[in-house]
Design a protein around this nucleic acid. Structure first.
Length: 441
RNA sequence: GGAGAGGUGACCGAGUGGCCGAAGGUGAUCGCCUGCUAAGCGAUUAAGGGGUGUAAAGCCUCUUCGAGGGUUCAAAUCCCUCCCUCUCCGCCA
């Protein structure tokens, strides 16, 4: 008898029946091909129809089996044998239809697993990053930067001996930076700052950096981004691309109490990304690296709480950049540029005057119930009965490399030294700047 | 890594082929009773899918006793694989 495991859908398959127009409208805004959805609708209907048939047969098999037992206990072996034969025949037929149901369910799952989340109604329209909307810009005055601030961080890093890209390449290949001296301290200080700033509301977690395949699936990083992930063949483990992965799975298959929501978590972890499609593009210095440190903040919330939590995470991510004296802008991602799991995302782009670029430093996303449905995270509403799927939200409180770059470029002084923003002083053992001429061979 | 023992409902724990979605207990909720408290009595107490129902309730039905697969008319119970926990040994930051 084949069992039907609950499959991790993202879109509620019921919406294919009850809310198809909205599903199609949302996916159209993303620029997704709708033929797959039509197929899913068809698969869902056929599967449900056949499943009813199978379940009816199975009910009959079960009751016949019970009758076999009763007949044997009462000593009527002939009747028992007859019932057993009947049940066996029906069971064989049931198995045939059931394998068809299993096949349909698998196909449906494949389609839905690859279908992205619906964009939020208030996410801007648009097809690509060019249609993203800059909501506001903070602390940016293009005329306020001096010549001394126009040195890119890879040059500063080499001059001061705080960033050693060559040796990083020797150890691990390109895009694996080595930080040295105050450069290394700065990495740690930035993370410590982010953790300290958010400890008032977020529980600190130190999760594993290697996770199982199903953990990657529940956040939507697999199967779509197989090529982006570092995979340890021998143990079948994946190096996390972000702490979002373990933090989202922390409550996997659990039912939370509404009183515990929103549940706010943060974690400082290394992040590993193969950046397979990005070879040669914006990869100088720390613009794009394979391994970096990041403090991620994440929350499980009720649908009603989600908007407020989203705003809180955004405000916190902004707060850290402001505390570091950096210029940044907030970008509202359009429907066509949204990540597959997200319903609404604000990117924080920090201005790096040395390379004169806006660097994506944080992505603050609301996933509605997409991830939670895949990860099977529910809550029990205080009012009423049953369970409901939670909403997940997250954002980088601080991602090191690009912020590191923006800090050293923004705070570079005419003599080549780098002034440390006051917020970092507690983490630098009394130092208030990174001195010039400190390069080592 | 080696040897052994286990994984059952919110928790503890019984259950070696049918009468078991699962005894008993604890906890929780509701009610009764007791002038307070303690005790006592009774009832309820998993999740999910499908169907029926205007809806709620209810009713029918399927799935789930760590996960997956197998044997059987019938599996919590038998077999296989995997995961996890505990004990002992080994190794080790």
């Amino acid at each position: 008898m084949v069992k039907h495991a609950t499959v991790p859908f993202m879109l509620d398959p019921r919406r294919l029946r009850t809310d198809l127009e909205a599903v199609k409208a949302g996916l159209t805004r993303r620029g997704v091909d709708l033929s797959e959805i039509d197929r899913a609708v068809d698969l869902e209907a056929r599967e449900r129809e056949l499943r009813a048939v199978v379940e009816g047969m199975r009910a009959r098999v079960r009751s016949l089996s019970k009758e076999v037992g009763q007949a044997r206990r009462s000593g009527d072996l002939a009747a028992a044998e007859a019932k057993a034969d009947q049940s066996r025949a029906l069971g064989e037929e049931e198995r045939k239809i059931d394998s068809e149901v299993t096949r349909l369910a698998g196909e449906l799952r494949d389609v839905l697993l690859r279908t992205p989340n619906l964009p939020a109604d208030d996410a801007p329209d648009g097809a690509s990053e060019h249609d993203n909307v800059v909501v506001r810009t903070e602390g940016y005055d293009p005329d306020a930067y001096g010549d001394h601030q126009r040195t890119p961080h890879w040059d500063i890093g080499a001059q001061l001996g705080i960033l050693d890209l060559e040796r990083g390449a020797k150890l691990s290949g390109s895009m694996f930076p080595v930080f040295r001296k105050q450069g290394a301290t700065l990495v740690r200080a930035l993370c410590q700052l982010a953790l300290d700033r958010n400890a008032d509301a977020y529980e600190e977690i130190r999760p594993p950096s290697l996770v199982r395949t199903d953990t990657m699936v529940s956040t939507g990083h697999l199967p779509k981004f197989v090529d982006e992930g570092y995979h340890l063949e021998r143990d079948d483990l994946w190096a996390i691309p972000t702490a979002e992965v373990p933090l989202t799975s922390l409550a996997r298959d659990e039912i939370l109490a509404e009183a515990d929501l929103p549940m706010r978590l943060m974690a400082y972890t290394p992040c590993f990304r193969r950046e397979a499609g990005a070879a040669g593009r914006d990869t100088r210095g720390l613009l794009r690296v394979h391994e970096f440190d990041k403090v991620e903040i994440l929350a499980y919330a009720t649908p009603a709480q989600a908007a407020e939590v989203h705003a809180d995470i955004l405000a916190r991510a902004e707060g850290s950049l402001r505390a570091l004296g950096l210029a940044y802008r907030v970008v509202d991602l359009c429907a066509g540029d949204l990540g597959g799991s997200a319903a609404r995302t604000f990117d924080l782009e920090v201005y790096a005057p040395g390379c004169d670029m806006w660097l994506e430093a944080s992505s603050v996303s609301w996933f509605s119930d997409y991830q939670a449905r895949r990860a099977n995270i529910r809550y029990r509403p205080a009012e009423g009965s049953g369970t409901a799927v939670v909403h997940t939200l997250n954002g980088s409180a601080l991602a090191v490399p690009r912020v590191w770059a923006a800090v050293v470029e923004t705070h570079r002084r005419p003599d080549g030294s780098v002034a440390l923003p006051e917020a970092l002083w507690p983490y630098f053992r009394g130092a208030r700047s990174i001195p010039p001429n400190s390069a080592q061979p």
